[in-house]
Amino acid sequence: MIRFTHVTKHYPRGGPALDDASFHVNRGEFVFLTGPSGAGKSTILKLIYVDERPSQGEVRVAGQSSVTMTKHQIPALRRRLGVIFQDFRLLEDRTAEQNVAFALEVIGTSQQQIGPKVARVLTQVGLAAKATALPHELSGGEQQRVAIARALVNDPLVLLADEPTGNLDDRSTRGIFQLLRDINASGTAVMMATHDLALVKSLDFRTLELNRGKLVFDSGAQYPAPADEFDPPVAGSDAGAQPDAQPGAQPAEPPGEAGAAGDVGEAGEAGGAVAEGGAP
């Protein structure tokens, strides 16, 4: 579902923020992104939601390639992703439910659909009772729940969380983290950037560790992508862009991983992504 192939990112000023990183994330996975501040965690997430483009290499997300994606394909991709941040990024002058509804309104969701969707997702994050509260009337943890609700309201393939507990006390941190696990348990992949090593060590989740832009450890690397997890190159276009994705060159998929069934689902959902639909 997400695949980085030899991705390097240089910002206009400064050295490489990400240096030749290759990894993949399957549907339904829970992945920690760890590393000290400045290691490149946020950069990886930004590359996924196409706030930045790679300087070298290829980023594939939900069947779209950073190499071939045009500017006006970005909004459609972002609608299939949810993103949350350390600073919540809510609109201060709108209530919790208005903040969530805003995300639907601006992508043209019809008014009748918005009400039930917002109610459902606020219930999911445990904030139904505070739907009409303004952000400043909510605790940090509750504000992050609103942000999560907004990120979830379009049923994303993956929730990208950039230090989601960075501004929270221990109690709220546990609550938010439990919520992310629940969300993951219901089938949504979660990628969470954090420098809270204690949290990461205490759990046996897949961990990508970064240091100064280099991917120094991937606890899931022993489980490579199933051959059909990624769309084969579109004939004649980006053939050879991902030489390590050749079917047969990969070890077999380990049992228990999000399997082929999920990928079929993805191909169906991808809609415009012809490459996936045509996968053998």
């Binding site: 939601y49 006006h72 970005i74 909004p75 609608r79 601006v106 992508i107 043209g108």
Partner: peptide, 17 residues
């Protein structure tokens, strides 16, 4: 700019923004 950033993030098209 906050509104604009959020609209971009949730996938609003440029016309909508």
């Amino acid at each position: 700019s906050r509104e604009i950033a959020i609209m971009r993030l949730v996938g609003a098209t440029n016309g909508f923004i």
